Every structure is written in C-alpha cells, then in structure tokens.
Computed example of a mutant assay.
Amino acid sequence: MANLSGADIRSLARMLADAFTADEIASLVYESTGDRLYDEFVPDNLPLRPMLEKLLDALQKKGVLRLFLAAAHRDTEKNRPDVATEIVRVCPEAAGETAKSDAAIEVQEAGKTQVDGPARAAAPGFERNVRPNLPQLDVHVWLSRLEIIERQVCRVEISGNAAGTGFLVGPDVVLTNWHVVEAAKNAGRMGDVICRFDYLKLVNGTRQPGIAVALAQEGCVSYRTYSAAEKTKTPDVPEPSSNELDYALLRLERAVGSGDNVGPRGWIKLPVAEMPMKKGDPLIIVQHPDGAPMKLALDTEAIIAVNESRTRVRYATNTEAGSSGSPCFTLDWELIALHHFGDPTWVQPLYNQGVPAQLVRMKIVEDGLAALIGE
C-alpha cells in the first residue's frame, strides 16, 4: 500500500477513536501483527486520538499498517460501515486482506521430521498474545482503582437485613435495582433503608462492620421498573423496553461521596454512550453476594450477548442473591452495566444479566436530576 498522508492519518485516527477504546485498539494490534507495537510506540499520557495518530505512523514505518487496517476493517464492516468505508478509502487492500496466519514450521531432528512436533508455530520469539481481548494490566494502577471503587460500593439494607448492593453515582446518590427497594417504597418504608459502606472481610479473618448511611427524606428520587416478563420463566419475551430498566436512585442523608469521617469517596461516573460489549469480553462485578462482605467476581470470557433492543446484556460472571444492584465493569474499570438478574433456570443456569449503564443515566437526566450525578 502507498504511504498515508498526514491528513489521511488524522482522519483515520479520528474515526477509529470514535469506534474503538484504547484496549480494543491494542487488541487489534496484537491480533493483526503479533507484536506489542501499541505498548512500544504509544505514550500513556495522551488522549486517544493523538495516541492513534502516533500508532498509525509507527505501524506505517514498520510496514504493518495494512495488516492492522485489515483487522480494523473486519471489526467495523457490519457495525460501523462509515469507519470501514474510510479504511478502504485510504487503504483499498484492507478489504481483501485475510486474517494473519502463523508461519507453518516443520520440526526436524537430524533432518527427519518429528511426528510429535507442533503442526504450526510462530517465529521468531517465544511469546504470543494468545487471547488478544485480554490486555496486560498495570498492577499498581489497576489495584489503586479497585481500592477507590471498594469505597464507593455499599450493601443496601432494609430493616437491618441485607437486600442488595448499590454504588455511589454522585456525591449523595446511590444506584441500585428497583426490585431491591420496591417493597419498601410501595409500603412507605424508605426510612428503613440504609446503605452500608466499607463492609469488608479483613486479612485477619474478622469483619469490618462499615459505616451505615441513612437515606434523605425523599429517599428514592428516580426509578424505572423491570419488565413484566422478567417475573416469568421467559424474561426476554417480549424484550424489555428502553423504559424498563429496573433501577432506583437513592438520595443519602449526607454527601459521603464528597467526604465523611474517612475522607472523600468520590463516585462512579455513569457513561454517556454505550460501552463496547463484544462476545467473550471480560466483565468484573463488585458486589455483596448473599449479604456477605464485599467480593469481586471476575470472568475473563464473560460477555454472552446484548439483546436486539440493546436494553440488556448477558454475561457469565458469577453472582448470588444480594448481588442485585452491583456495578459491572470492563477489565479497565469502565462501568458497563447495572447487574439486576440471573437466569431463572434452577438447574445449570446459563447467564446473569445487566442493564446497560448509559440507559440509566439517560433516564436520570430525563427526570431533571443531572446535577445529582455530577453532570
């Protein structure tokens, strides 16, 4: 292929930044070239678009830009035809490029083929990125983010009994499921609801009781119900509408997100747009399963599917009763969904299910409460 001009690189970087996250771009580089050029050439401290410009320039200098663009074209051909068209415009060869295959190597000893040798291998080098959708993580950065989230997730209790999980999405508001507080709300008993932060099991085996925070007088300030089908054995017939999101936004009596006796906690930002959710992507849930001290469940091949109306996402990450209302994250701690439901099949359940987080944000904003979530 001919070298791309600076204008082409800038145009392409802009469209790729709109279609992919940084992790997805890194995975595409691994998938298409087998090398870690993303980590080698892209600095950590730049926004995504200038990072992509540098990456495209580096791949071009290495002579592997065509392979990368072919992989990006395959990923965008169905869901982002505008991006796929731009790729073909700057690199027509990308449309016909097949997936990169490993080099075939015949293992011999003294000139004789070894029958038990590997049929295929990649050379040179001893390492390969076997699962491109699993990026390597910066340990300190990842753990630091977990420590922050640990202080933002809470156990929701009603009359002293564990009822579900919730998490701060603003200085004084907690998001959980509507079905967690439905009975209390309908009975006029929201005063019996508290959010308990920092309920943890410590390394010495004891339990830290945490801090109980009551609700403000208004209690539940925004909610949407679940679908009627989700109380049956066929929860997706019909599929939930964009207004059936099973969420409740609870107002706390004080702004613990901005600070309390243990310092500011901050809050988890609700995404404006739908986060990428590809089949087989990992998913993390921070939760209080069965009312237990906070736990983390991680599945590295979790995402099963998003429904046709894009109002639910299913995944394999484990939960239990009491996990309702938990935040679901990407491997890089980006909020994807509000967990709310499990496969109603008692024997060999196949999935758990969440509500895409950007839909919840949309309804909170529609209710005139954008200021509560830091907008």
Rank of each mutant, 00 (worst) to 15 (best):
Q287D: 12
S159H: 12
F167I: 02
G164L: 04
G257I: 02
P209Q: 10
V221S: 00
T176F: 08
E182T: 09
P209T: 10
Q287A: 10
R254G: 06
T232L: 00
G170R: 07
T206Y: 13
G191Y: 14
V262P: 09
Y199G: 00
E239P: 09
L283M: 01
E157G: 04
P282D: 04
L250A: 03
P289C: 11
L168Y: 04
N204A: 09
S241G: 15
D236P: 05
A216C: 12
V221G: 01
K185R: 14
D246W: 07
V180F: 08
T225Q: 11
C220I: 13
A183Y: 14
V181T: 06
V180L: 10
V213D: 11
Y199W: 12
P209D: 09
L252C: 00
G160S: 04
G257S: 08
P282V: 02
V286Y: 02
L249R: 05
D246Y: 14
E274R: 12
P293S: 09
R196D: 11
G263K: 00
W267H: 01
G291I: 00
N243P: 07
K201T: 15
V213M: 03
A248S: 10
Y247V: 05
A255L: 09
E274T: 13
G164A: 10
M277S: 02
G266Y: 06
N186K: 15
L250T: 05
G166L: 02
P209N: 08
T176A: 10
T234Y: 09
M277Q: 06
L252W: 01
I211P: 07
L252T: 03
K279R: 13
L250Y: 01
M294L: 11
D198W: 12
G219H: 01
Y223L: 02
L200S: 00
K233Y: 13
K201E: 14
G188L: 10
E274S: 14
E218R: 07
P209F: 09
G266P: 02
M190Y: 03
V221N: 03
V181H: 02
A184H: 04
I211N: 07
E239H: 02
G210H: 04
V173P: 06
L175S: 05
E274P: 13
E182S: 12
N204Y: 07
Q208C: 15
F167S: 03
N243D: 15
K279Y: 10
V181N: 10
V256S: 11
A216E: 13
N261G: 12
W267Q: 05
M190A: 00
A216N: 15
A273F: 14
A183P: 13
A248R: 08
N243M: 12
E182H: 11
F197C: 07
